[in-house]
């Protein structure tokens, strides 16, 4: 099975740290407003911990993420707290996108989004791919989706 590009760990860690920083900022603002200056070290400690947990989560998630193009379906293995293994049959693929968020572009990675007609698994995203791999994967999926019966998307 294929793994994601290692740089996606950086992306996820950055996201976690930014999130922790924003929350810390809000909490700090609250302490200023409520005049709780002795709680500040506690706030700082708490959000540092949160940030570190986020980074640890990013690394654990990367270790877990796998995907594979099997004979009949795209198979994904992901999730840290909840292990999720998803099979997306090629006959059910409506269309495939490659997407790059601003952070993706900064880090030079891309993601592939597979759309189905399903309700719960409607968009399935494979993050952390190099631009070429993302493009190649999208084309591969498109070929496989077309080879499968075209009249069975629902």
């Amino acid at each position: 099975m294929e793994t994601l590009h290692a740089r996606v760990r950086l992306q996820w860690s950055l996201r976690a740290l930014i999130f922790a920083a924003v929350l810390a900022g809000i909490a700090y603002g609250a302490t200023l407003l409520l005049d709780l200056s002795d709680v500040v070290p506690l706030v700082v400690g708490a959000f540092t911990l949160l940030g570190l947990l986020g980074v640890a989560y990013a690394f654990a998630l990367y270790r877990r993420w796998r995907f594979d193009l099997e004979a009949d379906a795209l198979y994904l293995v992901r999730g840290v707290v909840t292990h999720v293994e998803t099979a997306v049959p090629y006959v059910r693929v409506q269309h495939v996108d490659t997407q790059r968020t601003p952070l993706d572009r900064l880090l030079g990675i891309s993601r592939v989004v597979v759309y189905t007609a399903g309700s719960r698994g409607a968009d399935v995203t494979i993050p952390g791919l190099t631009v070429e791999r993302a493009r190649a994967l999208r084309n591969e999926l498109r070929e496989l989706a077309v080879d499968a019966e075209p009249d069975d998307a629902v």
């Binding site: 049959p89 059910r92 309700s119």
Partner: peptide, 16 residues
Amino acid sequence: YYRLQTVVDEATVFQR
């Protein structure tokens, strides 16, 4: 069967 879309196997920490 012919109405199936994605099929997911999921397990939370407690289930595992």
